[in-house]
Design a binder for these strands. Structure first.
Lengths: 197, 197
DNA sequence: ACAGTTCTGGACTTGAGAGTCCATTTTGCG
DNA sequence: CGCAAAATGGACTCTCAAGTCCAGAACTGT
């Protein structure tokens, strides 16, 4: 029911979303204009409003979806297989490395701190992302519990919530201060806590 | 060297900053206009630019300073006297209660997620805030260590960094999803970790 | 190939908000 | 009092970006 879209049209639409995402990651949500996006993606205003009749808001929502997918994808395969302490460490390293390497260029930070609060629809995207993420971490904790590597008394969901919060806070702080310490400390402390519980 | 300011002038300037802070907390940074601020504070454009010749940016910087002070003040007296587990719990409850009670109306969230990245000057304000906060938490940990209530092996600064990150993440998530779980989980897990270390 | 639809380009309109300017009032002070 | 500096009000300009519109090119299926 969405729309009749030819192959070419779908490609253009996709190009716009990807270009807008990149532009926003690089320059921030507030400073990016539709014209910037047109320039970058070699499209025109007409096309932009053709594919996103709702204008800026609708495009931003599509960008939010796109970015949300990236956040989880970028943590794979680690996040999906937290079955040993080595795996947890690898995941931790992957998360830290990613943010060390790309600095400001961060989908999650943009999503949560800039897009998230704007409209109900984009809030829903963020909420779903957080939920999935937390669930995957919780799943990892439960697997470790089955293998009796983590005490059964640990509340998997609650610990997962704390870990996700720690990462998110670490990333926020990094985006504002440029320092990575907090992210590392949050992850290390959380994992350490799971170990000794 | 700043400026010759009469008592009346200083009062007006102060009124503008306070009004702007409130307006931003209530409606978000991007949606608030200078005219909104004028209306709320019963001032005019002329006054606004008289006191903040640098315009919007300069005003925002003053707001950032103002809000940064609130963040720490609002956690007192708890944050300054983390000398027993009861005190830690009281602090934890104060933080949670504050966010439960005021929801979106949050200086820290606004600061970190909206103002922080804008200009170098506002980044500096945020960086200083985080530093002070972390230091106060670390100080609390050290006092507990002196009283042998926390193991001496704990790295106070690193743990404090993790705690601040957890709170920040919890607040960010709350601002986007409306749920308080993550903030509570982060604080509880962090304190629990200090206890059992 | 041809009719209908989708896609594309870009000029144009519109609205909003930051910043300017200056006339007027109030205050500080000798 | 009386002058200079500071404070105030508000109309005005300027810029810029979102969104509109339409004409023309490219593609679709029959």
């Amino acid at each position: 029911m969405t729309k009749p879209l030819t192959a070419k049209g779908a490609a253009t639409r996709q190009r716009i979303v990807a270009g807008a995402s990149a532009e926003i990651r690089e320059h921030g949500l507030q400073t990016v204009t539709l014209e910037d996006i047109c320039r970058r993606t070699a499209t025109s205003k007409g096309q932009l409003f053709h594919y996103f009749p709702g204008g800026r808001d609708e495009l931003l929502l599509a960008v939010a979806d796109h970015e949300a997918a990236r956040v989880l994808d970028d943590q794979q395969p680690y996040l999906g297989a937290l079955t040993s302490w080595t795996a947890w460490q690898a995941w931790r390293d992957a998360v830290v490395a990613r943010y060390r390497h790309q600095g400001q260029n961060c989908p999650l930070g943009v999503l949560l701190s800039e897009v998230g609060r704007q409209t109900p629809a984009s809030r829903a995207v963020v909420t779903a992302l957080i939920g999935q993420w937390q669930q995957q971490v919780a799943h990892g904790i439960r697997e470790m519990q089955l293998a009796t590597k983590i005490a059964a008394s640990v509340d998997a969901d609650r610990s997962a919530a704390a870990i996700v919060a720690g990462i998110q806070g670490g990333v926020s702080i990094m985006l504002s201060t440029g320092e990575l310490n907090h992210l590392e400390a949050a992850l290390d402390s959380a994992i350490e806590a799971l170990r000794t519980a």
